[in-house]
């Protein structure tokens, strides 16, 4: 029986809370998140507004719940795109010619040296701001993490006897990659996805804070932070609520990643493949 680690339970619960909030927001929120109620301006927590209201009198909790959708959407799409591109690149880098692997890794160094925020600012300058631009920018800057983890994992798998045995049985390189190498690096990919998700949440919040992410009419945690900025003295609560949400979500995905690593890969002590942060 495998030990169920505390990190996995806590991380899983936090992530489940974010997902639940986003899902519930589709059918029910305490109030219309866009509804401006002037007399509730900066209202404190109460029976009507559990987490209070912002400077336009919009319900904080409702906006937080709808904001979770943006957070998850950006995370899923950017991490998904990064994995779809990064995983094949990592396999190719590990399994084909050594020079090609080297070139791919140097290109990924180049991308790694380029912060997602900077990339988003460039893309925004060209295409205008929006959630899609944010997802693309975060996605591109996450590709190297997947490519590297998959490459290092695949290199280890490639040196195992069962890969030689598969070749001895007449398997061709593409078949070996798909049937033997990929299934044996899946746990690494899952762990990396979880950790990258946390980074994507943070990046999305940062981009929204800078006004480069979600447009003003779409609630987002980063934008809520930004709007609270001018009111830090009167209503610090408006910064604390989305701030805590972001922190818990990031913590949740990080803990989930660590927990999954322990759960999925008991051999990790032997295979020391470091997750790229």
């Amino acid at each position: 029986m495998r030990r169920r680690s505390g990190t996995l339970v806590i991380g899983g619960s936090l992530v489940a809370m974010v997902i639940l909030a986003a899902l519930v927001s589709f059918v029910w929120t305490p109030h219309d998140p866009g509804l401006v109620v002037p007399q509730d301006r900066l209202a404190g927590p109460s029976g009507k507004h559990w987490l209070g209201a912002d400077k336009l009198g919009r319900d904080e909790l409702s906006r937080l719940m709808v904001g979770a959708r943006t957070t998850l959407l950006v995370g899923i799409v950017s991490v998904g795109v990064a994995a779809l591109i990064g995983v094949p690149l990592g396999l190719v880098a590990a399994m084909t010619w050594r020079w090609l692997g080297e070139i791919l890794m140097r290109v990924s160094d180049f991308v790694l040296a380029f912060p997602a925020v900077l990339l988003a600012i460039m893309l925004t300058a060209i295409y205008g701001s929006g959630v899609v631009i944010a997802m693309i920018a975060i996605g591109i800057s996450t590709i190297p993490a997947f490519a590297r983890v998959v490459r290092s994992g695949a290199l280890q798998v490639m040196s195992t006897e069962y890969v030689v045995a598969a070749r001895a049985a007449g398997r061709r390189p593409v078949g070996i990659g798909l049937r033997h190498v990929l299934p044996n690096v899946t746990s690494l990919i899952i762990v990396q996805a979880s950790v990258s998700f946390a980074i994507a949440i943070l990046a999305e919040a940062a981009l929204s804070f800078l006004g480069l992410g979600a447009p003003p009419d779409v609630p987002s945690w980063g934008r809520m932070l930004q709007e609270s900025q001018s009111l830090l003295q009167q209503a610090p609560r408006l910064a604390i609520v989305p701030g805590v949400a972001i922190a818990l979500a990031v913590l949740g995905f990080n803990l989930l990643g660590d927990g999954l690593r322990d759960l999925l890969d008991p051999r990790l002590q032997q295979r020391r493949v470091e997750v790229q942060r």
């Binding site: 195992t160 006897e161 069962y162 030689v164 045995a165 598969a166 070749r167 001895a168 049985a169 007449g170 398997r171 061709r172 049937r179 033997h180 299934p183 044996n184 899946t186």
Partner: peptide, 23 residues
Amino acid sequence: APLRGKRMSMVFQEPMTALNPTM
């Protein structure tokens, strides 16, 4: 590749590692 496993095949030394753990 068409010869390996068909015309000639091989048994390896270490049975613990010669099989894919995920299949």
